[in-house]
């Protein structure tokens, strides 16, 4: 792989004595869409949250875009803010700011983080609301929107900061299936536009269709990875086979 946009080397994350992520290394190319799957407690969220340093690894190196950090010494505030500026994150619970309108949810971070003027920020917001098909909701408060609409707003809010990579942690798990579909469709468009994406998901059909690579995690480690047709249809490890069979049976 030439010039990965995200590169993790020897990442370890511990919660007290619990070793949640064990010596994980991972390179992701620009424009690549990676689906991360695995049983509950495997460490998927923890690893994803290490990429924007929402979790602090005990050791390893982290490279995102123009930044490379050695994680065995504390990072400066400036570096952390810069790292987070170049990554966008979408959460299972949306986490829109309930006391702000949709427009302010998306414009305020642009003004505070990128220093855009209100006019410029609102212009970008309007364009992104078009893109997630919610142009008519600019003045609504999040509580008035469906979960699927809220999640699309959350995606627009993250995109507004022009991230180099988008991180998704089970973006459709809190949604009814049909509302999940509208979110997945926005994500599909985003992938087609060339965004680099890392998606923790249980949506195997989505992973099979959109992902360039599927990563299977268990017990804090990557146990299998490869193109979706290989990993999903024809997994090599018994453990992976069992995992996909269990998911397929549930659907």
């Amino acid at each position: 792989m030439t010039d990965p946009i995200v590169s993790l080397k020897g990442i370890n994350i511990r919660y007290g004595t619990h070793h949640a992520v064990r010596d994980v290394s991972l390179d992701i190319a620009k424009g690549e869409v990676v689906a991360m799957v695995g049983p509950s407690g495997a460490g998927k969220s923890t690893l994803l949250r290490a990429i924007n340093m929402l979790e602090t690894p005990a050791s390893g190196t982290l490279h995102v875009g123009d930044f490379t950090f050695a994680l065995d010494r504390p990072l400066g505030q400036k570096d952390l803010l810069a790292l987070r500026r170049s990554t966008g994150m979408v959460f299972q619970q949306f986490n829109l700011f309930p006391h702000m309108t949709v427009q302010r949810n998306i414009s305020l971070p642009q003004m505070r983080v990128l220093g855009r003027s209100r006019e410029e920020a609102d212009r970008v917001t309007a364009r992104l609301l078009e893109r997630v098909h919610l142009a008519d909701k600019a003045q609504a408060y999040p509580a008035r929107l469906s979960g699927g609409q809220q999640q699309r707003i959350a995606i627009a809010r993250a995109l507004a900061l022009d991230p180099q990579v988008m991180l998704f942690d089970e973006p459709t798990s809190a949604l009814d299936p049909e509302l999940g579909l509208e979110v997945l469709s926005v994500m599909r468009e985003l992938a087609a536009d060339g965004m680099t994406m890392i998606v923790v998901t249980h949506e195997i059909a989505f992973a099979a269709e959109v992902a360039d690579r599927v990563i299977v995690m268990a017990d804090g480690q990557i146990i299998e990875e490869g193109p979706p047709e290989q990993v999903i249809r024809n997994p090599s490890l018994p453990r992976t086979q069992k995992f996909f069979r269990a998911i397929l049976e549930r659907h």
């Binding site: 924007n52 929402l54 505030q77 803010l81 810069a82 987070r84 500026r85 990554t87 966008g88 994150m89 959460f91 619970q93 986490n95 829109l96 700011f97 309930p98 006391h99 305020l108 971070p109 505070r112 983080v113 959350a154 809010r157 993250a158 900061l161």
Partner: peptide, 26 residues
């Protein structure tokens, strides 16, 4: 909800901005 601060952190907002615009009003 813990996710409020996490979302603001992930957006790259400073500690003071998170307090002023996201946490304090709520």
């Amino acid at each position: 909800p813990a996710g409020q601060d996490a979302a603001a952190v992930a957006l790259g907002m400073t500690r003071l901005d998170r307090l002023r615009f996201v946490l304090a009003p709520q």
